[in-house]
Amino acid sequence: MRSFLHRHPGVRLAGLLSAPLLWLVVAYLGALAVLLVSAFWAVNTFTGEVVREFSLQNFRTILTEDVYRNVTLRSVGVAAAVTVICVVLAVPMALYMAKVASPRSRHWLVIAILTPLWASYLVKAYAWRVLLANGGPVDWLLGGPGRGPGYGLFATIIVLSYLWLPYMILPIYAGLERLPDSLLEASADLGARGSRTFRAIVLPILVPSIFAGSIFTFSLSLGDYITVQIVGGKTQLIGNLVYANIGAANNLPFAAALAVIPVLIMVIYLVAVRRSGALEEL
């Protein structure tokens, strides 16, 4: 048996890969295919039964009704804002971790970045609900009830930025760890101050890492539907629109059609950042 496998590497490879491939094809690509197909079905408004007939009605609705375009733009705006905030916060933190902190404290800082990921998403979102409540700690810090942002679009952006920040810090940190100190020294040696070195050397070299992080923050924000329900007030994003159509509206085909939007946006985004070499950083 052993020598048979040795002589037939193809069989060996098949044995090794069949289970994961099966999972990938059936569970992952299969689910995506079902999503795509069902997006072209419809629901009988009277019985609530899914009508399995090809129709472009769902997409026509999405493209013609303003509300869906607005929700899409708002969702992309939220994802972009979250990504920008995460970059602005993550770069200095990662820089400190990778280039300033001692190797020993570096370990603890990485653990500190990772620990929030161990806590439940819901717990963290509700913690922010408490923080942002009318008369809550944030209000109090800013000088009294009603002074804080309260629930809404702004709160959604803040909480999503908080939730996805580790996914931005880690790739940037990894990128900085691979950046030799001698490059920073060479820049200083050639007359550049810290700010110049940062702009001319560190940032350009970090671009692929930043894009790698942005793939996480952008796609996770685009698909989120829980945070916006908890702290978003009346804000509607693609995510909770999909959720509403699955639940309250009981229109699975329309939900599927809506879900195609973030998939498409992410495909466009991935193609756009591929050129920067970001995909090699993942």
Binding site: E185, R193, I201
Partner: peptide
């Protein structure tokens, strides 16, 4: 600090900036 000293260094690992061309590297200072 190094950027206020009239010395330049050739590093053991050369420390060339990977995102710049040869000419841009030489022009940097």
């Amino acid at each position: 600090p190094p950027f206020e000293r009239d010395v330049n260094t050739v590093f053991q690992d050369y420390a060339l900036f990977p995102h710049m061309s040869v000419l841009e590297n030489v022009e940097y200072g």
